[in-house]
Design a protein around this nucleic acid. Structure first.
Lengths: 245, 245
DNA sequence: ATATTAATTAACTAGGTAATTAATATACGG
DNA sequence: CCGTATATTAATTACCTAGTTAATTAATAT
């Protein structure tokens, strides 16, 4: 919570100062156009964007309202409390995405290489469609205490997680997956090779060396690492394996 | 309390009834033991622990003082301001560690595999010696705006980062490192396979499947992945189903 | 006309927050 | 054994902030 603001805006006077010569947006029901359900979705979108940018704990209702061009009271009108806004976010936005991730694992329970590479690609397409996802998830991984993770587990359970774990153990037993891997860390590694860089590149917009990086490069890099490690692919041999792009 | 009217009692009575019958710790120079430099270090340690736990922005001076069992005024005494505390943290704790990371890269500029595996091990020993490091660094990677990253760069520059980048490019040109890797993402991948899980496991203390994970398991897993990818290693002397990679 | 809905303004509540002071207790050099 | 330097607490100052509610206004539907 940044509370250190040296410039003092006087005291308790009426707000008066309306910037934005454009449209001061007078009170009362607005004319036509934006339906209630649209407004609600716009508020949710604003909330997700800000949560991704600065974290959940550091985002106030006032900030969300401002980003959406409305007053804080609107948030209460549509979501009643801050807590309920979080619940709505989880139910309507997070759970569907998470489900689509787990589906990939379950649809390829008999082919580790396919499961992993499809998972990487799924991560990438999710990140493209929902720009808030990577950042919020990564933030969730390194705490945010109970704000999201516990809440999600509460609504979702961890049955899927367990079955994925057993899947990995089975692959190893069948000799189809490196036995040196730690089953409980496989998923975290995928995160670390996809969601983490995806989140990081957003902070690199002004770094000359890394400005050009996008989802495509990240996916290529992650898949190369996952499939062969860091070593060169043709170790002095002549046999050219076919290279999947 | 935004009370506009401060009817001043002005009298300075002791707060009375301090909880904790133990030791209310009256003012005045304490008897023996804790030297000034010890106290200073204890305060720094408390700050780092809290920063790692809840992030820098969400940690107040009062919280740090409380964690160290002293009053907020102590922080003022030793560090003058919050900003200066951050500067001290960076100079005395962060930069030495970061330097020790970059040394590994430079000491092994002619051997990619050694550089990478030593780097992984260095990460692990750092994380063991300085439990705050992984969490604070990871938080820094995904934003915290300018709180740390810019400050560190200001004091440290990014010459090392650039030379590491060129080192990777050279390895690729020499055919000693997979050409499918993205040079700018190699370091991030190491982070994602070490610091990220290290940070995450601290949150998994109550997860039955993942409670047992420690630095050793993470290092093993990361090295396996980095060296060979997810595929099974071909054990000598036994033929197994052909794996078209 | 009336009721309902969507939205705004303005204020209130309750709690931080960093910084600084005055008082106080001990340690230490002379 | 006394004065001064050091270390520490209690208390205060002077703010800022967030979430929430109440009153109100205007557009629309009945």
């Amino acid at each position: 919570m940044a509370a250190r603001n040296p410039d003092k805006p006087a005291a308790r006077e009426p707000k008066a100062a309306k910037k934005r010569g454009a449209v001061p947006r007078r009170p009362g029901r607005p004319t036509g156009g934006a339906s209630a359900v649209d407004q609600r979705n716009r508020l949710i979108d604003s909330a997700l964007a800000l949560f991704a940018q600065q974290g959940i704990a550091d985002t106030t209702l006032a900030a969300i309202a401002k980003a959406a061009g409305v007053t804080p009271a609107m948030l209460h009108y549509y979501f009643k409390t801050r807590e309920q806004l979080l619940d709505v976010l989880i139910d309507e936005r997070f759970l569907p995405v998470r489900k689509s991730i787990e589906e990939v694992f379950e649809a390829n329970a008999d082919d580790p290489a396919a499961a992993i590479s499809l998972l990487v690609q799924r991560f990438m397409s999710i990140a493209e469609e929902y720009p808030w996802f990577a950042s919020i998830w990564m933030r969730g991984v390194l705490s945010e205490g109970s704000l999201l993770k516990d809440r999600i587990r509460e609504r979702f359970g961890d049955a899927h997680q367990k079955s994925a774990f057993q899947c990995i153990v089975r692959w190893q037993a069948e000799g189809r997956l490196s036995a040196d891997l730690e089953p409980a860390l496989v998923f975290m590694s995928l995160l670390g090779l996809t969601m983490l860089p995806l989140t990081a590149v957003k902070m690199w917009r002004d770094d000359p060396l890394r400005r050009e990086l996008g989802a495509k490069e990240i996916a290529r890099h992650a898949l190369a690492l996952l499939m062969h490690g860091v070593g060169p692919q043709l170790p002095a041999g002549k046999k050219l394996k076919k290279q999947v792009s």
